[in-house]
Simulated assay, not measured.
Amino acid sequence: MTIRPPAWMPRRALAARVAALVLAGASGASAGEAADRYAAWHGCLDRHFAFRAAIGSRRLAADAALQACRDVQAAYLASVSASPLIDADDAIQARPALVARARSRLLGRGASL
């Protein structure tokens, strides 16, 4: 069964829904894997951001961290799309909003998880 968001649902809401379902353990073992990969993605972002921000611009550091951690992010989205509650297309559509939220987190709070 695939849950489809209404056509009016903005990407931010879709991204929040994807993250909430994963963190709530919506699909058993795959949710645990997705949560682990989510933590790994944010850990990668934090490490790269902290290093780059110490020697330069925070905005450039955030962009560099997002670029450096694309493989980890792809693994996270792949694990989310494997969930029976989330369609693969939903995970792909949520990517820009997830990236924007991660960038805002890095720039707003620094590099803490």
Rank of each mutant, 00 (worst) to 15 (best):
I3N: 01
R4G: 01
P5I: 00
P5H: 10
P5K: 02
P5G: 00
P6A: 11
A7Q: 05
A7W: 01
W8R: 06
P10A: 03
P10I: 02
R12L: 14
A13K: 05
L14E: 03
A15Y: 04
A15F: 05
A15M: 02
A16P: 04
A16N: 14
A16F: 09
R17Q: 08
V18C: 02
A19Y: 13
A19F: 13
A20L: 14
L21P: 02
L21R: 06
L21T: 02
V22C: 11
V22H: 00
L23S: 04
A24W: 13
A26G: 05
A26T: 02
S27M: 01
S27C: 14
S27Q: 08
S27G: 02
G28T: 00
G28K: 02
G28P: 00
A29Y: 09
A29H: 10
S30W: 12
A31D: 04
A31W: 00
A31I: 01
G32L: 10
E33Q: 04
E33Y: 05
E33C: 04
A35E: 14
A35P: 02
D36G: 13
R37H: 12
R37A: 09
A39G: 00
A40N: 12
A40Q: 15
A40K: 02
W41Q: 09
H42I: 03
G43M: 13
G43A: 14
D46E: 13
R47P: 01
R47D: 13
H48M: 11
A50I: 07
A50F: 07
F51E: 11
R52Y: 10
R52K: 08
I55Q: 06
S57E: 00
S57Y: 03
R58C: 02
R59S: 06
L60H: 11
L60N: 08
A61I: 12
A61M: 03
A62Y: 13
A64M: 01
A65H: 11
Q67A: 14
A68M: 10
C69M: 09
C69Y: 06
R70L: 06
R70S: 10
R70G: 14
R70F: 07
R70T: 14
D71G: 04
V72G: 03
V72Y: 09
Q73W: 11
A75W: 14
A75L: 13
A75P: 08
V80W: 01
V80I: 09
S81T: 02
S81Q: 05
S83Q: 12
S83R: 04
P84S: 10
P84E: 14
L85A: 10
L85Y: 01
L85M: 06
I86E: 01
D87M: 08
D87W: 06
A88E: 03
D89C: 01
D90E: 08
A91R: 11
I92N: 02
I92K: 03
Q93I: 04
A94F: 06
A94V: 09
A97E: 03
R103M: 13
S104L: 15
S104R: 15
R105T: 11
R105C: 03
L106H: 07
L107K: 05
R109Y: 14
R109Q: 11
G110T: 05
S112W: 13
S112Q: 09
L113E: 04
L113K: 03
